[in-house]
Design a binder for these strands. Structure first.
Lengths: 150, 150
DNA sequence: CTGCTATCTTACGTTTACGTAAGGAACAGA
DNA sequence: TCTGTTCCTTACGTAAACGTAAGATAGCAG
């Protein structure tokens, strides 16, 4: 029962790995590349502890990798765009709680929008490919039935 | 002006590579893996010559690789399924011209169908991902506007 | 405190998918 | 026939994305 002061559940790497369906090595590697938040403080001695947000992030990364075929390098670039703008703004006006939250959300939105763009682009390419395959199949079937009834 | 006895246009590897948008090395590598028809006879001395069908095949391979992220190993398996059934059948009944054509088309259809299945599966995954991203974006925008007007 | 299991770092190994260089034939045009 | 370009094979090199083994440390159960 590991918990933060805010009562958040925390997970160790083995749990996370099994949950997300990747290896511990992959998680450490992604962390090393900075794909998980920059300064993920290692609580409790030297064992890494992950939040639900970390797990969600990992799932997101895996999907971007698997579905869109993005390289880890491209994934870091996607992440940087969001983090840079986030930290620049937080520094600029971090007075009230609400203001800070606003900034964080404002910074995160373009990142999600970018991901959606990538998904849509891939969907268009796939639709095109699908159309060609469907056409091809139809033509083959036509020829076949033409041959069969001589 | 290289031509076969049937009057088909033939291309050399440099032409093909530029046309398809890959390197000569990649083409030779794919050939080595058996991704282009098994026994592509090397006409005219030792220079490879490619048909329009070969070029179409290469484009197909590149798309399956890029859009679906299939490994070259998976691509060979996809190809084998078609070729095996094709050669088995050709041997069984290769009497008339029409019968042979019929067999070839019959053998090729499942391959295209399999490709379509893969495309559809990927489309479903992408649609799911898209829905989640859209939801996420909507929720973020709601929170943002709620914060902005206090 | 002890023993057992999970994690840690370090670092070399591995696979995939080609890149690239070397030395030598084969073409295509003049 | 000469020559510059294109292609050939052979073979070692490489980047990405982890795999894997070793030896040490941390955390938990009794």
């Amino acid at each position: 029962m590991t918990q933060t002061t805010t009562g958040q559940r925390l997970y160790k790497i083995g749990e996370v790995a099994e949950d997300v369906g990747i290896t511990q090595r992959t998680i450490r590697y992604y962390e090393e590349l900075g794909l998980l938040g920059a300064d993920r403080a290692r609580l409790k001695g030297s064992h890494r502890l992950f939040t639900d947000a970390d797990i969600a992030r990992l799932r997101e990364l895996v999907r971007l990798r698997n579905l869109l075929g993005l390289s880890l390098d491209e994934l870091t670039q996607l992440a940087e765009a969001a983090h840079v703008s986030q930290y620049l703004r937080v520094r600029w006006e971090s007075s009230t709680e609400d203001a800070e939250r606003t900034e964080i959300i404002e910074a995160a939105i373009p990142n999600v929008e970018r991901q959606l763009e990538l998904v849509h682009a891939r969907q268009r390419s796939l639709a095109e490919f699908e159309a060609e395959l469907t056409d091809k199949l139809a033509r083959m079937r036509e020829r076949l039935s033409a041959l069969e009834q001589q």
